[in-house]
Write a protein that binds this DNA or RNA. Structure first.
Lengths: 215, 215
DNA sequence: TCAAAAGTGTTGAAGATACACCCATGG
DNA sequence: CCATGGGTGTATCTTCAACACTTTTGA
């Protein structure tokens, strides 16, 4: 084992949310010398005794204050030359959070900001590629996975759920078809609560966790 | 960067083929002290200046003699404790090869052997988990991806293609439905060649590479 | 002439798409 | 009383699943 190359290993998180009915993702401003002031995905080095999943959660918490975010592994990027400081591979994750989360960095100054996915700034390293890969993935998985429910709180109206789908796909959906589909898939069920905000009260639904699958 | 943990990084390859109409995967016998004589996925350490993809191809070539195998990244496993020699993460790949490839190890003695996926031996490290994850993945992707064509040579009969699908899924398919499906998906096209082997000659088809997608 | 694999259509069920109006509420 | 979003049904098309017999060839 002594003559074997070792690597720096980082995790990077592509975190999505919806604001103004549009899909956004979170970028931080880099403080370090390399790529100083460029935008980058939240992330950082994996430490000695934590799993990759745990590292992704920890880094996200440190840079945004967000806890208990459900993350899924996306892909591992490891081309030589993707980080000039040394041989570094990054394990990318993605996740979604409700739109109203307050962000606060523990490591002050890294200034996390939401950007619409249609209008992303220049990014450090190969983070642009990672972000686009994540976007492609959630669009492909929206119908088969339950990650979308991470964007909503426990109870939600079907219109809210539809709005989430539309934001991710970037296109409108038919209301009646959408409602029929999610109801007969059995992934949501009605509650006896109603949302009073707005004009006519709307019935609230909840996500049915039949099998907590990887999705 | 000086106080940052470094990791050993390996690649492991779950290579499938079909023999006797059943799906098999390739395991090698370990020579190293740790887990000596256990079966393990072909793989090894990533070197200083190669990409992860290249490392997977190289390791596979070294242990089996197979060149130009199309591999897809599967998942990255990095729990602390998965390798007792030190903190090691592995980037797993999967791929498929035609059944008639001759195997020959360059690093003699590692003795690559095909095992039916229904009857796998004990394996070193967390390789069992990796193998099962790969199996789940190809079954899920069989309809959306073109990896199955890696199992066939340039020209093939529809019966051969169907046999490949059946082996992967582990269940029989209806001949007429299968043929209609692949034809109207437009992923195969007939040639003017016929296979004489067997009784009645069968028309040969070829894979249509419209978009060389990751898919 | 027989054994073995090649090839070929139809029907019914389920799922997807397109489409328009009335309702309850707060201002 | 009106503006806003909530809620509902039908007709059509496409897709998927089930199902059996005839053809060609080599032995």
């Amino acid at each position: 084992m002594t003559d074997v190359t070792t690597f720096y290993v980082t995790v990077d998180v592509v975190l999505f949310t919806i604001r103004d009915r549009k899909l956004h993702l979170l970028l931080t401003r880099r403080l370090a010398k390399l790529f100083e002031n460029h935008y980058a995905l939240p992330g950082g080095f994996v430490t000695e005794d934590e799993s990759l999943d745990a590292a992704a959660m920890r880094e996200l918490a440190e840079e945004t204050g967000l806890l208990d975010v459900h993350l899924e592994q996306l892909y591992t990027f490891g081309d030589p030359g993707r980080d000039f400081r040394g041989r570094t591979i990054t394990v990318a994750y993605y996740g979604l959070v409700p739109h109203d989360q307050r962000l606060q960095s523990l490591t002050d100054g890294c200034n996390a900001t939401w950007f619409p996915v249609t209008d992303l700034p220049q990014m450090a390293f190969d983070h642009r590629k990672i972000a686009e890969y994540a976007l492609e993935r959630i669009r492909n998985e929206i119908d088969h996975s339950n990650v979308v429910f991470e964007l909503l709180h426990g109870r939600f109206t079907l219109t809210e759920l539809q709005s989430v789908h539309q934001a991710i796909l970037g296109q409108p959906l038919d209301k009646r078809n959408f409602r029929r589909k999610v109801l007969q898939k059995g992934i949501v069920e009605p509650t006896q609560e109603w949302r009073q905000t707005g004009r006519k009260p709307a019935q609230l639904y909840r996500f049915v966790q039949a099998d907590a699958a990887r999705g």
